[in-house]
């Protein structure tokens, strides 16, 4: 349960950072002329940041997959056996 909450918090922070970084005023820092590797600065920034958000989202959602698979069967089995005890 704790790891799930932790993941939710991380995702929420990531979304907030994304919203902040992709809007005024942070965006205006990159709104001007300039080229990075021949790519317009604004265009470069948007796509690189975008890719970064995707990467982090992937890391956060996938990283806990193993723990959940481990704990999933337990949570699944316990209520069932409880039920049976109660009625049987």
């Amino acid at each position: 349960m704790r790891t799930i909450r932790k993941r939710n918090e991380r995702l929420l922070v990531l979304a907030l950072v994304g919203i902040l970084a992709l809007n005024y005023p942070l965006l205006s820092i990159f709104a001007d002329d300039g080229f990075v590797f021949g790519i317009p600065l604004l265009y470069f920034y948007l796509f690189v940041f975008w890719g970064g958000v995707i990467l982090l989202a992937g890391l956060i959602t996938e990283s806990k997959a193993r723990e959940e698979i481990k704990s999933a069967p337990q949570t699944h089995v316990t209520p069932q056996s409880d039920d049976r005890d109660a009625s049987g």
């Binding site: 995702l11 990531l14 979304a15 919203i19 992709l22 975008w50 958000v53 989202a57």
Partner: peptide
């Protein structure tokens, strides 16, 4: 110019929140 992009940046930010 880059004015077409918010239509795709928005879903990205939303997708981050999809998990919950």
């Amino acid at each position: 110019g880059v004015g077409f992009l918010p239509i795709y940046l928005g879903p990205t930010l939303m997708a981050v929140l999809w998990w919950f």
